[in-house]
Design a protein around this nucleic acid. Structure first.
Length: 485
RNA sequence: CGGGGAGUAGCGUAGCUUGGUUUAGCGCGCCUGCUUUGGGAGCAGGAGGUCGCCGGUUCAAAUCCGGCCUCCCCGACCA
């Protein structure tokens, strides 16, 4: 008990003030820091290393499914952004404009991209002439600027990093298939790499991407009971191809407009990882994306440099050779206890302690960040044990997050109960909705709950019909409600 | 964007109401030395500040006034 108190003495408790806890962890773990411009942050090396790991793992999947990376301009001429009316209307409140080059005012304002459909559509119209040019499967990793009014590190920042895929297909079916394939890819990625279980579905008219025919999404439930959108996959139909004139001659020698998709995930995912797994001692990073998977803390004291350090160094080399991201913390200016707490703050999944006692027994102590379990491990089994434990930590983080999601999911069918859940427990509410924007709006006004996703048929598991939670009308739309970020 | 709160050393803060007693104080951290080191070490000595920025009032401003910037909370808006 006393130990636990000491561990948490410097951090705001997660349960007491979630948003303060969140910001504090991000700053203390040196993930990010505020920049002197509203809503902008610096992603510090430790945070950026998480992003790089996450990026590599996702990039691999994007390429495995046939896409290539490219890079398009940061600026979009106003005339291009204006072409798709809904798109412009949706984004115009958040666009940052460049009006001058040096001292001269520009003839035409340039938007700093809030997303790249317009500039990419413009280029695609030049590149696509025949069905033989299709499909076009391009992704770009880029920065985006949206002038948001309320910002929070990683979750919503004025500038953020993301990937955006932009594809063009011969047929609606093929584009639809791509949209769904990416949705599944995001879901699999979130669960197996970030250890965050997600729900998926389609957005309502109100919530869909400006200019899309349909928006599909993956959403996760955070520790404060609010939902966070983790990624979106849009079926764009021919909205953009018509205004950007992306036409091709099809197999029957007829001119046709291309069918498009776009999809993206951002640095927001880092915020999701922080919120989903962290606790009162700091971050808990899933081993798959942790910049440091194993930290070795030698117990200093006496002639440790001659006895303990060589063994610790040997362990480091062995693990490194096995492809494990390992760090040996041999700093003399800090005591072991301080290092324990510090690496816990940074969310390193596994700690290995080596001291004089261990050396006598030819062992080391392995301590898990997720459970706190301490286990002696024989030195000659260490490599295999570490590998297995990291895999197990990855699994158990997902399991714990999944349990949380289950424990905070509700199925209700009367509005009073619905209101009470959103007011008190929060969490995800599965219920029926008639499909009318009027009901959606009223529910939002009265409860602050929004429809995060309309379940796809395949996820409904037998529940075909029910009554709208608000108006009682018979409907087949099963939806997830939640308060959202 | 509206309402409320805040900004003093790397972090947390006292001082502000009632301007001068402050050479701006304290805790943690930092530096040096010695002793320590299995859950945030101890002692001794030391360094570190344009009091968010700009301007005004005054003999005198961290303190009073105005403008601006940034952060937090509540709402509106929004991927």
């Amino acid at each position: 008990m006393k130990n636990e108190e000491r561990l948490v003495k410097k951090i705001t408790q997660k349960s007491k003030d979630f948003s303060k806890w969140y910001v504090e962890i991000i700053k203390k773990a040196e993930m990010a820091d505020y920049a002197p411009i509203k809503g902008m942050m610096v992603i510090r090396p430790y945070g950026f290393a998480v992003w790089e790991n996450l990026q590599n793992l996702l990039d691999l999947r994007i390429k495995e499914t046939g896409h290539s990376n490219a890079y398009f301009p940061l600026f979009i001429p106003e005339s291009l952004l204006e072409k798709e009316a809904e798109h412009l209307e949706g984004f115009s409140p958040e666009v940052a404009w460049v009006t001058h080059g040096g001292k001269e005012e520009l003839e035409e304002r340039l938007a700093v991209r809030p997303t790249s459909e317009a500039i990419i559509g413009n280029m695609y119209s030049k590149w696509i002439k025949s069905y033989r040019d299709l499909p076009v499967l391009i992704n770009q990793w880029a920065n985006i600027v949206r002038w948001e009014k309320v910002t929070r590190p990683f979750l919503r920042t004025t500038e953020f990093l993301w990937q955006e895929g932009h594809t063009v297909h011969e047929t609606a079916e093929e584009a639809q298939k791509e949209t769904m394939m990416i949705l599944e890819l995001y879901k699999e990625f979130a669960e197996s790499e970030l250890a965050i279980p997600v729900i998926s579905g389609i957005k309502t008219e109100r919530e869909k991407f400006a200019g899309a025919e349909a928006t599909y999404c993956v959403e996760a439930l955070m520790a404060d009971g609010k939902a966070l959108q983790m990624g979106t996959s849009h079926f764009l139909g021919q909205h953009f191809s018509k205004v950007f004139n992306i036409r091709f001659e099809d197999r029957n020698q007829k001119l046709q407009y291309g069918w498009q998709t776009s999809w993206g995930v951002s640095t927001r995912l880092i915020g999701a990882v922080v919120m989903a797994h962290g606790d009162d001692s700091g971050l808990k990073l899933p081993p798959r994306i942790a910049p440091i998977q194993v930290v070795i803390v030698p117990i200093s004291g006496g002639d440790w440099q001659k006895t303990v350090l060589p063994v610790a160094t040997r362990i480091k080399d062995e693990l490194k050779q096995a492809g494990i991201r390992v760090k040996l913390d041999h700093r003399e200016e800090f005591t072991p206890g301080w290092k324990f707490a510090n690496w816990e703050m940074r969310g390193v999944p596994l700690r290995i302690e080596v001291g004089p006692r261990d050396i006598k027994n030819n062992q080391a102590i392995a301590v898990r960040r997720d459970t706190g379990d301490k286990t002696p491990v024989a030195l000659d089994e260490l490599k295999e044990k570490v590998r297995a434990t990291l895999a197990d930590i990855q699994k158990s983080l997902l399991k714990a997050a999944f349990k949380y999601q289950q424990d905070n999911s509700y199925e209700v069918d009367n509005f009073e109960e619905f209101k009470s859940v959103l007011e008190n427990q929060r969490g995800l509410i599965k219920t029926f909705w008639c499909g009318a924007s009027a009901c959606e709006d009223r529910i939002k006004n009265e409860t602050m709950g929004t429809i995060r996703a309309v379940l796809l048929d395949k996820d409904k598991s037998g529940k075909a019909n029910g009554k709208c939670i608000l108006c009682g009308k018979e409907t087949d739309k099963l939806v997830y409600f939640a308060r959202a970020y």
